[in-house]
């Protein structure tokens, strides 16, 4: 029989899956790659379970594993010369479909603009704006100083505004 802690840990991992997959989607911009990255990251988290410090946030730990794995994957793909296409993202309407439909044009343009950001900017946008991480937690995931999180967010905001143009201002 597995230990009770193991079962709890796995269930907590399972509950993180939708958020982890969303982070993967923003990183990879490809639905199939996002599925693979999510599963690989959670598998790694299970293998490394004994290294997890329960006093720390599990989501931060798992997202960091995912970020590191993605960097490894990118390096391997670059060495092999492999390129992955950018999918249109598999979005959902969210909980409030009506609100989304009312604002879907802005949602679509913002999503498209996020897709054009550099990867390091997409990552901070995904963590802070989309997932609600605090700057310090985002910094822990990405292994960068808080000040760098802030400067990347600032550049992301400027790039998004430029991409959306003045006419897109709601």
């Amino acid at each position: 029989m597995p230990k009770r802690d193991d079962i709890t840990f796995r269930r907590e991992l399972a509950s993180l899956l939708p958020r982890a997959r969303r982070f993967a989607l923003v990183l990879t911009r490809n639905a199939a790659e996002a599925d693979d990255l999510t599963q690989a990251a959670l598998e790694r988290a299970m293998v490394k379970a004994s290294l997890y410090d329960p006093s720390k946030r599990l989501d931060t730990w798992v997202f960091k594993i995912m970020q590191n794995h993605w960097i490894d994957q990118r390096r391997k793909m670059a060495r092999r010369g492999t390129q992955t296409g950018i999918d249109a993202l598999a979005f959902t309407a969210g909980e409030d479909g009506r609100t989304l439909m009312e604002t879907h044009d802005l949602v679509r343009r913002v999503a498209g603009a996020i897709g054009t950001l550099q990867e390091e900017q997409r990552a901070v946008v995904a963590l802070v704006w989309i997932d609600g991480f605090k700057y310090q937690d985002a910094a822990d995931v990405l292994g960068i100083p808080v000040g760098t999180v802030m400067s990347r967010l600032s550049r992301a905001r400027q790039n998004l505004l430029a991409r959306l143009g003045e006419g897109a201002a709601p």
Binding site: R10, R11, L17, R21, A31, D35, Q39, V107, V110
Partner: peptide, 27 residues
């Protein structure tokens, strides 16, 4: 508005069949 639109655009999606099965295996 931009922040809210980003959160809406990337609302957690329904998992693919493969990931849903993986979630079950975690449970």
């Amino acid at each position: 508005s931009i922040r809210r639109a980003a959160a809406q655009a990337f609302a957690p999606a329904e998992l693919s069949a493969g990931l849903a099965a993986f979630a079950e295996s975690l449970d």
